[in-house]
């Protein structure tokens, strides 16, 4: 049986502190009460991120852009990777967009509890605020990188020599949903990593390896149509596969709507998020002692 560690009765505002056992409730109401703190933490992350860097916020663009260039030369040019009839640069960049959000969330959220150790050992606030803010602060980089994509599409569209017609379809309206799915996946994995990192610093070493490995099983440099039909659903167990396919479908209208794959990816993403939330809440009570 789960026993709530903190019972708040709004009428009298009595707080009872006692040892808790088992699985804690998510207590999302408390998180909502601290929404201003989440806002300030996001704002701090963004403000601080590129301070004392020469190139500042342009790093948010440089990273995906040059990865795209390298992919285009090696996978698109030399390896002649198919790209679902979309110019390879646009093809890979649409994949790199949510991928950047995801990897940044993984590394930032994964380390977030450690970097905010002094706050955790000195002040109470819902601990969920920390990884949540880390994940959300990645949205700014995402938006900056997104502007580049628009520029690329416009460039290819009007440059007739390149023979590419951008297809603006109603599918574009579904983009926010795919962005949400990317956030759900990022937060889910980020929660697991951040809570594990409090106890096991191995996570610091696992994160770079994990991101590298994950890149190969996500259709960024190659289209998921390369995967044999019967393996697709298994492939979609990687929620990022569904996210990237969804982004491509919504933005550049490749192939068909990713139906079954998307369903599998969404389910897995939700499972990771919910289990991550509960795991985090369970580990939360010893954070201040263990960190």
């Amino acid at each position: 049986m789960s026993q709530n560690s903190i019972v708040r009765q709004t009428a009298e505002e009595v707080l009872v502190l006692r040892p808790s056992r088992g699985w804690a409730s998510l207590n999302l109401g408390d998180l909502w009460r601290y929404r201003e703190l989440i806002y300030f933490l996001i704002w701090r992350d963004i403000k601080v991120r590129y301070k004392q860097t020469v190139l500042g916020a342009s790093w948010a663009i440089i990273q995906p852009f040059f990865t795209m260039v390298v992919f285009t030369i090696f996978f698109g040019g030399l390896a002649k990777m198919p790209s679902d009839n979309v110019p390879y640069p646009i093809f890979s960049y649409t994949g790199l967009l949510p991928w950047g959000l995801f990897t940044k969330a993984l590394s930032d959220a994964g380390r977030s509890m450690i970097t905010n150790r002094s706050m955790i050992t000195k002040v109470y606030f819902p601990r969920l605020a920390i990884p949540l803010a880390s994940v959300l602060s990645g949205l700014v980089d995402f938006l900056l990188a997104f502007l580049v994509l628009i520029g690329m599409i416009v460039f290819y569209h009007y440059n007739l020599a390149l023979d590419y017609q951008a297809k603006l379809s109603p599918a574009l309206l579904t983009l926010p949903l795919f962005l949400l799915l990317a956030l759900v996946t990022s937060l889910g994995v980020g929660l697991w990593l951040s809570a594990l990192n409090v106890q096991y610093r191995d996570i610091n070493y696992i994160i770079p390896f994990l991101t590298q490995f994950w890149l190969f099983i996500t259709p960024i440099a190659y289209p998921s149509s390369m995967i044999p039909e019967r393996w697709r659903l298994l492939y979609a167990l990687n929620p990022m596969a569904g996210v990237v396919e969804g982004f491509r479908w919504a933005l550049v209208g490749v192939a068909n709507a990713p139906g079954a794959m998307l369903a599998v990816s969404t389910t897995i993403a939700l499972v990771i998020l919910v289990s991550g939330l509960f795991y985090f809440r369970r580990m939360e009570r010893t954070f201040a002692d263990e960190i």
């Binding site: 560690s5 009595v14 009872v16 502190l17 006692r18 955790i120 010893t286």
Partner: peptide, 17 residues
Amino acid sequence: KILSRVTEPTEGYAEIH
């Protein structure tokens, strides 16, 4: 630390109004 909710008690309880 217990009273400010940074850490949980191992036994007993505290009530804060």
